[in-house]
């Protein structure tokens, strides 16, 4: 029963949604919109489960003093502070503990929420992202070692494209660089895309027909 109900639901709804794609009628569109709304509602409830997981995970780390446990109180503290500040600060018509910022009177919670997000979340995310520049350099170094014919081809192609971009309008490599990107590179990308799309369709079919049950935790 534990498997049969989800499998039946998947089969029925999978076929219904497939048919829906071919019906432009209003009832069909309404059904699709309702299904999407359900997805959002379920997502909202799942977030509570995610939150419980987050708290449990860090609580366990602190309790057992696992390696790096000191970060967990910070994570939990940040969760509580941001939740309180966000819930109060983002509520309309909530103006507790007002402060004046640039001539505007706002709640201190709104001020803190905006500050934490703008001056902590965004710079920290940007820092992580900027590390990518150094990683690209180290990864490129490894890739461009001419060990085989394929690596030599890769090295030459990359070199041509780099020169074409850096010395744009200086070296006559613009067309060659453009050609490498838009013909051989694009052909390979489309090949991968075509295969992946068919793979996606086949996987969907397997799931709808109940052949693929891995996502339910097993094949039995």
């Amino acid at each position: 029963m534990k498997r049969r109900i989800p499998l039946t639901l998947t089969l029925v709804l999978g076929i219904v949604m497939m048919i829906q794609f071919f019906i432009p009628h209003q009832f069909s569109q309404d059904f699709k919109n309702t299904a999407l709304e359900w997805l959002r509602v379920i997502g909202g409830f799942a977030f509570i489960i995610g939150l419980a997981s987050f708290i449990t995970h860090h609580y366990t780390k602190i309790k057992h003093k696992k390696e790096g446990w000191a970060y967990s109180p910070i994570a939990l503290g940040a969760l509580v502070v941001m939740a309180v500040v966000g819930l109060i600060g983002r509520s309309p018509n909530m103006n507790w503990i007002p402060v004046t910022v640039q001539g505007q009177q706002i709640s201190v919670f709104t001020y803190l929420f905006s500050n934490f997000f703008t001056h902590m979340m965004i710079p920290l995310g940007a820092t992580m992202f900027s590390v990518l520049a150094f990683y690209i350099a180290s990864a490129a170094y490894r890739s461009f070692r001419a060990k085989s014919l394929v690596s030599i081809l890769l090295l030459v192609a990359a070199f041509v494209i780099m020169l074409a971009i850096i010395f744009y309008n200086v070296l006559p490599l613009g067309d060659l660089g453009e050609w490498l990107l838009s013909v051989p590179n694009m052909a390979a990308k489309r090949g991968i895309l075509l295969g992946a799309s068919l793979g996606g369709i086949a996987t969907s079919l397997k799931i709808i027909l109940g052949i693929e049950r891995g996502y339910l935790g097993g094949t039995k």
Partner: peptide
Amino acid sequence: PDSVFFITTSQFAYVA
């Protein structure tokens, strides 16, 4: 149960 857990929906916080 603690081996599968949720971290965050924020892309780079997850990466960190």
